[in-house]
Computed example of a mutant assay.
Amino acid sequence: MVIVAACIAANLPFVNQRLLAAGPALASHKSLWLRLLELVVLYFVVGTFALLLEQRAGQIAPQGWEFYAITGTLFVTLAFPGFVYRYLVRHRGA
């Protein structure tokens, strides 16, 4: 469930023009920097969701910097299809 949520959240900044998919729609295109900032925010949102699930299941396991480095890298890897769609695929009429 967490991996599916991470996959959806990682691609969300690249497939819409709204801020965090719920905010106001931007008239012009969002910049790459804004999309990357959204990616970081959504990483922490999914991490909080995973932490809540783990807390409900029992004791929370301690994590070091390695855990966050791996999950951050996985989140960026999951965002690759959205990045390819937004920046590398040629869209008609654009």
Rank of each mutant, 00 (worst) to 15 (best):
M1E: 13
M1R: 14
I3A: 14
I3N: 07
I3C: 08
I3Y: 11
V4K: 14
A6G: 03
A6R: 00
C7Y: 10
C7K: 04
I8E: 10
A10M: 08
A10S: 13
L12T: 13
L12C: 12
P13E: 03
F14E: 01
F14I: 01
Q17K: 11
L20A: 04
L20R: 03
A25F: 11
A27K: 07
A27D: 14
S28G: 11
S28N: 09
S28W: 06
K30N: 06
K30F: 02
S31Q: 08
S31D: 11
L32F: 13
R35M: 03
L36F: 04
V40Q: 06
V40F: 07
V40D: 11
V40W: 06
V40E: 11
V41M: 08
L42K: 05
Y43L: 10
Y43Q: 04
Y43W: 11
F44H: 07
F44R: 05
F44V: 05
V46H: 14
G47C: 08
G47W: 11
T48D: 09
T48I: 12
F49I: 05
F49T: 00
F49Y: 15
E54M: 14
Q55C: 08
R56M: 07
Q59G: 05
I60R: 14
A61F: 06
Y68W: 15
A69I: 00
A69R: 08
I70W: 12
T71G: 06
T71Y: 02
G72F: 01
T73S: 15
F75V: 00
T77A: 15
L78H: 00
L78F: 04
F80C: 07
F80A: 13
F83R: 06
V84F: 07
V84L: 14
V84E: 09
R86F: 01
R86H: 03
Y87V: 00
Y87F: 10
V89M: 13
V89G: 02
V89A: 06
V89F: 11
R90D: 06
R90C: 00
H91R: 12
R92M: 11
G93Q: 05
G93R: 09
G93E: 05
